[in-house]
Simulated assay, not measured.
Amino acid sequence: MPLSLGTITQTAFMTRDIRASIDHFVTNLGVGPWFMIEGGSFAECYYRGAPSKVRLTTAFAYARGMEFELMQLDNDEPSMWRDALQQPFELHSFHHWCHWPDDYTATLNEALERGYRVYQDGRTTRGRFVYLDHPALGEILEITERTPERRAFQQQVAEAGMRWDGQQKIVTDWA
């Protein structure tokens, strides 16, 4: 049985310096503008089932039919992001794939039936999320609940990416 749960809609990277990674993506890959959330926290966050008060700076951009995410850890709370920083890399490193299913709960249940395990999960003001790992894959898959608020943000990022003229690198006044 294939392990795919649906279309990959986002590719995410861990970075030690989000602004340097944004510069790289803009200059060398033509990806932008980046919608940045600095020092973000979660309404709820659990790392391997235990509460985590992790803080994260994230940035999102859209190019060529794909959303890109950059993540920079802002504190030392136990989290999958802290785990990722234990691996050697220079500027940024691939972190996870993301799938935005129409039915979050059904897709999560199907993933668990296929052998995926919850690595980290929680909720933001825009809805639930879960990061899964699978012993046979060695990769992380995020499943994100597509609430109206999250759909609106994803649409805003996509439209900005399609209109982008290469001038503005970072958008912080999008809320």
Rank of each mutant, 00 (worst) to 15 (best):
R48C: 04
Q10E: 10
K169F: 03
R151M: 07
P148L: 07
D133I: 06
G138E: 00
H99G: 04
L141Y: 04
I37D: 00
A175K: 15
F35H: 07
M162H: 07
R123S: 09
R146Q: 12
S93A: 11
V157T: 03
R114S: 07
M14A: 06
F153A: 03
Q155A: 15
Y62P: 03
I22G: 05
N75I: 05
D74F: 13
E44S: 08
F42H: 12
E159L: 08
P2M: 14
Q120D: 01
R19S: 10
Y46E: 11
F129Q: 04
S52I: 12
I143W: 02
Q72A: 09
E90H: 12
F25K: 01
P101F: 13
P78A: 15
W164C: 07
S4F: 15
E159T: 05
A160N: 05
M66V: 03
H96T: 06
P88H: 15
M80F: 15
T11P: 02
D76F: 15
L85M: 10
D76S: 11
R146T: 04
S21Y: 02
D17P: 02
A84Y: 01
H95T: 03
M1A: 14
S79P: 03
D102W: 15
K169G: 01
R151V: 03
T9N: 11
E77R: 08
E44K: 14
T125I: 13
Q72C: 08
A106P: 10
A84C: 09
R16L: 09
V31E: 00
T147S: 14
M66R: 06
H95Q: 13
M14Y: 14
P148S: 09
A50W: 15
G115F: 11
F25P: 00
N109D: 09
D17Y: 03
T15M: 14
Q168R: 14
D102I: 07
K169I: 00
L91H: 11
G127R: 02
H99S: 08
W97M: 10
